[in-house]
Write a protein that binds this DNA or RNA. Structure first.
Length: 494
RNA sequence: GGCCCGUUGGUCAAGCGGUUAAGACUCCGGCCUUUCACGCCGGCAACACGAGUUCGAGUCUCGUACGGGUCACCA
């Protein structure tokens, strides 16, 4: 490659603005941690009016998953993390998918070999088995490390299979500066000669990442703390090229418990699983933002826009955070309650319709009584299935101390309720409410004494969304009266 | 095992040398009420341990313990 080729690439690099990237590998789903990294990257860029980029890191042919890129794009989309440059929309430093950038990496690897900062290695790949053998942690110099450049180059030219490895210095030390972790100094001698270019010609993550971050003009690099021990090697690479080192922003891991990180393999939910389970994207995003980052004040409910205002790298924590589903659930219910009635009805509808087929039942009315009582959308069906069909129930449910009811009283109450409801001219919540309250008054019993049996008879359940009035209203007159009759009958038998 | 990082209630966390050590989730009371919720009010509960620096340490230093990360031709 001649210098012009490199120069042209360099010339394309946008400068002067903050540029961050989310660089997932397409595994078929989105990790909760990945979403958080994407969010932070987005915030760092957008806070400064910068550019947020999506880059797909698909350099592992063995792990390719069909459709995975689409999942990533959709996720970013419905989380509101809109990227300015990416695989589908292009940009000044396209392409944004590493498998489409393959011809870029080898010349850079060769350049490093020429400079003596890397070398060709012809050793056979290590066997899977002796990789993990016991305490074999020693790093030993690669036999090809000291092969003269000309010799190795001619072998490469002759077609020998090879990998390119970085030539880490054996002395001195490297200091990494991280916006979260501060300065970390590592003796170079413990750094291994990591592979840059694989035998199949693909770059490794470590290499492609550095090349692309540079070529794409990335100014701030966020990644999980699992990469922090590789950071000195990245610095060495940047230095070998004479490139400016970006600002590292390392975020700690999200854990399932004190000793295990969140992982799909162990059955922990991915972002997509959470959505399927009835969580709202905004709620998940909000919750995840607060795992490992704090805005400092007492405010916890933050929209993406709010976060843009208050986000600061100094609020990122170094210690790992345990993912707490209870708290996520709380955020979710907060978001549900904050929605407008119409919006809630819209998202609840599919869940409502999954159990309620009866056309006489108003989906909107059901949604209204549900909104304050559901923490996630997926709890909806079991809460309202009684509207569709009256479940079998035990008459013991009519007995309620606080409402001062027993079976006898309940039967009387149902008979009274039936009498007034049957003659009700308009079937509205207000009308039902007023006539029942008046009836209780006339009977000289407390409201609950009348309401409790009516609710039990019409729902067949001890716990229901909404009270007697709402249930009667939603059920409609005919069904309400029918269910009251069923109740009276059951109580008569008992 | 080497190297690196971390440690405030069960969980998320504020705190950046002087506080009665915030707040949120969970849990437990109470109020409201036609059930359950929602809402409101209240409560339980923490600086891992040991030295040192300092008039004074959750805050600084060192050590110990515990936990995590990493040591792939995976990312």
């Amino acid at each position: 490659m001649n210098n012009k080729w490199f120069d042209e690439l360099e010339a394309k690099i946008p400068k002067g603005k903050v540029r961050t990237r989310f660089a997932p590998s397409p595994t078929g789903y989105m990790h909760v941690g990945g979403l958080r990294t994407a969010l932070y990257a987005y915030l760092v860029a957008k806070k400064d009016n910068g550019t947020f980029i999506l880059r797909i890191e698909d350099t592992d042919m063995a792990r390719f998953v069909e459709g995975a890129t689409e999942i990533i794009k959709e996720t970013l989309n419905d989380a509101g993390l809109n990227y300015d440059e990416g695989p589908d929309i292009g940009g000044p430093v396209a392409p944004y998918t590493q498998s489409e950038r393959l011809e870029l990496y080898r010349p850079y690897a060769e350049l490093l070999c020429e400079k003596g900062a890397a070398y060709y290695c012809f050793c056979e790949p290590k066997e899977e088995d002796d990789k993990d053998t016991e305490n074999n942690f020693e790093i030993k110099d690669d036999p090809c490390r000291d092969m003269p450049y000309e010799v190795s180059k001619s072998r490469v030219d002759a077609g020998d299979p090879f990998v390119v490895r970085m030539k880490a210095p054996r002395d001195g030390e490297t200091t990494v500066v991280d916006a979260v972790f501060g300065e970390i100094t590592t003796p170079n001698k413990i750094l291994d000669d990591m592979v840059l270019l694989k035998r199949d010609g693909y770059p490794t993550y470590n290499f492609a990442n550095v090349i692309d971050d540079h070529l794409m003009g990335i100014t701030h690099v966020m990644r999980g703390s699992e990469y922090i021990s590789s950071a000195p090697k990245y610095n060495l690479l940047y230095e070998a090229f004479g490139w400016e080192i970006p600002v590292y922003i390392t975020v700690s891991l999200i854990m399932r418990d004190a000793q295990n990180k969140l992982s799909k393999r162990h059955g922990d939910p991915t972002y997509n699983d959470l959505l399927d389970d009835g969580y709202l994207p905004e709620a998940v995003l909000n919750y995840v933002a607060l795992l490992g980052w704090s805005p400092g004040g007492e405010r916890e409910i933050l929209s993406l826009k709010d976060m843009l205002e208050v986000f600061d790298v100094s609020g990122i924590s170094k210690s790992p955070a345990i993912f707490d589903k209870d708290k996520l659930l709380h955020f979710n219910s907060e978001y549900i309650r904050a929605m407008s009635e119409e919006d809630f009805a819209k998202i609840a509808k599919p869940y409502i319709c999954s159990v309620i087929k009866n056309k006489n039942i108003s989906v909107d009315a059901v949604a209204r009584i549900l909104q304050a009582r559901c923490e996630k959308l997926s709890d909806i069906p079991e809460k309202i299935d009684f509207f569709e069909t009256l479940p079998e129930y035990d008459t013991e449910m009519f007995v309620h101390k606080k409402s001062k009811t027993d079976k006898m009283i309940s039967r009387d109450m149902l008979i009274s309720a039936k009498k007034v409801l049957i003659s009700l001219t308009e079937w509205t919540s207000e009308a039902i409410h007023d006539i029942l309250i008046n009836t209780a008054l006339g009977l000289e019993v407390k409201n609950a004494t009348l309401m409790w049996p009516v609710r039990i008879a019409t729902a067949g359940k001890a716990v229901t969304p909404g009270g007697a009035v709402e249930i009667c209203y939603i059920l409609g007159r005919d069904e309400t009266l029918r269910r009251i009759d069923v109740g009276i009958e059951k109580l008569t038998d008992a």
